[in-house]
Structure formats: C-alpha cells, structure tokens
Design a protein around this nucleic acid. Structure first.
Lengths: 162, 162
DNA sequence: AATCAATTCTTGCAGTTGCAACTACTTTCG
DNA sequence: CGAAAGTAGTTGCAACTGCAAGAATTGATT
C-alpha cells in the first residue's frame, strides 16, 4: 500500500524537505527561530557575511532574508553594519548570544537530522546520494531555468483567461 | 570552488526543491497557479478526493489547502461538495476548466522537471536515487518526529529567554 | 566629471502561511 | 440512548513570503 502515490523525484524530495523542515521548526521554536534563522546562525559561525552572500549560502530569498535579519538583530542574535569598503554592502555578524546558541545547537542540525534521513543507509549509499544531489544542483544551474521557458512561451497564446 | 559550502543532505535537498519549485511557480504563473495548485490539479486527474486525502497526497498543510481550494473554486478550476455518506468530509473534483488545464500541462510537470534534474543520470542512478528517497520517507515516518524531541526536552531548561 | 548602468540592500504591498481554536458531524462505549 | 472522544474541514490571527519598485552607492563609458 503506497502511502505516497506520486513517486516523481521532485515530489518525493518536496515531501522529505517539508517534513524535515517541520521537524526543525518545531525543535527551534523554543529558541524563537525557524529553519531559515537557524541556517543563518550556523552559516555565520564560519565568518561574517554580506546579506547577499548569506542569501546565496542559505537559500533564503533576499528580501525575506533582509527582514529576517531585522528580527534577528532585534532579538540580539546578530549585528549588521555597513561595509566601509563598499557602502552598498551590509556585513552581518554573530552577536555573542547568537554565537552561543549556534555553537550549542549546531551538532543537532548537522548530524542528527541527517542521521534520521540516512538511517540504514550504508556509507556507499550515502556517499552516492550526496554526489547525485550535487549533480542535480549543477543541472539546475546549467539549465538556468530555461529549458522550460520554451513551454511557457508555447503557452502564452492559449493563456487561460482566469 | 564550491558554490555551496554546506553539503548536508537536508540542505542540498532544500536548495534543489526550492529551485525546482521556483521554476514551476514561474511557469505556472500565467495559469494563475503556483506549485501547490498545480499538484492539486494533477492529483485530481486520478479521481475525486476529500480535502484530507488531498493534503496527504500533495504534501500541502490542511488549512493552507482549504484556502487554496477556496481560491481554485472561485476561479472555476475545481468544485467542492459535502460527502453524502459522511457529512464531515468535503469531496473535491475537477471542474471542466481545471481538467482541461491539468491534461494539457501534466506532461511538463511529470516529465520535464524530472528530466532536468536527472540529466546525465544513467537509469541505474535514477532508479537507485528514487529508491533511497522512498527509504528516507519511511525513516521520517518511523521516527515520527521524535528522535529529536529528546533534544528539545533537554533544551527546555536552558531555554533562551529571547 | 557627468551620465548611464549595475550592484546591494530595503520596503510597500498584496497575498499566503501555519498554528490553534472552532464548528459540525460521526463513532465509541458505558 | 447519551456523553465523551474522535475526525473533517474552516477560520481568526499574527507573522511571513515573493515580487516589484525604491534608495543608496559604485563602476563604466565617453
């Protein structure tokens, strides 16, 4: 009995990601954070970043990130300052309280969640899986979002007037 | 040079899913839909469903789905009616306009997006990958969201007062 | 050096989200 | 039966989202 009937890769991945993120959200709730904020914290452990870099490194959309940073700053987790070298950029750093939080919880995020997913995988499975994920990202990068725009163009004519 | 520095499985999957869904959203925009709506339409091609079933089958949260259905109903894509056999349930069906749309666009969704991701994968890679995804879902199911609650409990004491 | 283009970040807006509370109906069980 | 528990779906609320437009700064071109 298939609990999930649509076995397309994108959909399966959607389900998995959704569930893992719900777990993280639930877990991070007492910290006053959700997954995006958690990612920002951990990322900043490796050094200060501009908003742009953070967006790229965490996969959070830029405007969303900007407002997330406002909240995290208000809570005292991070600080923002304008880059002296390039007045357009804003440099984001961990505040002490954010650093403490990040250090304390990093292992859960980076080990435990992955461990749940990969339970019962042999190391070779795991290695291979990760490798394929990276290749998928490359594929997406290279397709630049466009192999499909042909279809979209094809559609413009008969556009539903909704 | 690693474009992505965090190579944890959940994060890689997050990035991939986010990008694919952005592609779909972009493509479905002229249709007045986004990915969740697209999933609902295609799912309904296989038969009428209750709201609950749809939520489970599409991975959309129940209250979100309820409101999505209201919008799709207003646009004439679907219809809702109360189940005569069980007055709690609501049965969702495709309206003609929604069926037309779904039939027309299904191939793109089910083939093309997957094709982009899996470009350059040999059939064995693909088969194996899909298999691992299904196992991951099982793992999540079985962990019931709880291997981590130990940690959460552990955290309650030192909860950040944010 | 002055204009035009590009980059970085923020904000206005309208729409969407998830949680929790609620209503309505059905099943269970003393 | 009738109360209590369970299930299905909707909605209030406050918060969040993405897009598009904006403000500020820097780079390129002539």
């Amino acid at each position: 009995m298939a609990k999930v009937e649509d076995r397309s890769i994108p959909f399966l991945m959607h389900l998995i990601v959704g569930r893992v993120e719900a777990l993280v959200n639930h877990w991070a709730r007492p910290l006053g954070l959700r997954i995006e904020g958690v990612r920002v914290l951990f990322r900043l452990l490796t050094g200060d970043r501009t908003v742009n870099e953070l967006a790229r490194l965490t996969g959070v959309e830029l405007s969303t990130l900007s407002r997330l940073l406002t909240r995290m700053e208000a809570r005292g987790f991070i600080t923002r300052r304008r880059d002296a070298a390039d007045g357009r950029s804003v440099i984001v750093s961990l505040a002490p309280s954010g650093r403490k939080l990040a250090l304390r919880h990093q292992p859960v995020y980076f080990k435990d969640y992955e461990a749940i997913l990969m339970k019962g995988f042999n190391p070779d499975d795991a290695r291979r899986f990760r490798e394929l994920l990276v290749r998928m990202l490359d594929n997406l990068e290279q397709s630049g979002g466009d192999p499909i725009s042909a279809l979209r163009a094809d559609d413009e004519e008969r556009r539903v007037s909704a």
